[in-house]
Amino acid sequence: MAATTADAVVPPVGAPAEAKERIEWRLATPLAFAYMAFFAAPLLLLFWVSFHEDNELTRMGPGQWIRFLSDPFYVGVVWQTILLGIATVLAATLLSYPLALVFYAASPLARKLLLFIIVLPLLTSVVVRTFAWIAILSREGVINNTLIALGITTAPVPLLQTQYGLIIALMQIEMPLMLLPLLAVVQGIDRSLVEASRSLGASHWRTFFRVLLPLSVPGWIAGATLVFASSTTAFISQSVIGGGRLVYLPSVIWQQAMVISDWPFAAVASVMLLISVLTGILALGAIGRLIDPRSK
């Protein structure tokens, strides 16, 4: 009896299920249309503008692209931008992995504290973090005053407006972006794997390189992608800490668009930045598939 009433209530599987799926799809259309109108359209426009010879956008042609790609200065800027991204990823990795390992071994309370320490700078404005690094790296800043007080140097060491200073600052500014995905993956690693490795006589180092490192690669890839994308685009940090002599793509874009008002050339530089970041992301994904044992 109960079965028959249930049969009467539950609708047949075929057609209504499809209808249900259609209704659910429709919930995505407002955001999809908003993204087409205000995200895809402007980006397509950027490509279109980059293929114009003049600022009034009347003549189309590859002139701006030829001008950009045949100038060793601008090609150099592209390389410097990519190298800055790579250097920041490496620097962030150097400090993020030890923190992730400590997090893995830590108690729940210590984990909470560590997460707070990571999230606080992330949610503090990039301009605030950049400003902090001026106070640290400047002539009368934390590092120079410490070095002089310890008698290591007598005169202040120039740190602002140097590549090293910029990489150190960007490492701190972007590090939380690497840590969050890395910690998410690390805390999911089965403890019995580590215990098995240890009880079979492997050292901590060997356990790290053979168990924890390979298993945490997906988290690192996700984090490295965010750090690479963010550090290559970090206009204010680059221009304030790097200064005028270190030129990266974002400052070329800003100069050309807002100071010189050369839109087509600014568009070319923007598309180059898009290409550089996408290439970096794809390369990181390829590295991930190469290392990650589970993707084989």
Partner: peptide, 27 residues
């Protein structure tokens, strides 16, 4: 080797925490 692991990872993690928190305190 385990002792070297604890020292190296521990020092780098401390440096990591100092680098994360330091700028906030300086500001």
């Amino acid at each position: 080797t385990d002792r070297s692991y604890v020292v190296v990872i521990g020092l780098l993690a401390c440096l990591g925490i100092a680098v994360l928190v330091g700028p906030v305190i300086v500001v």
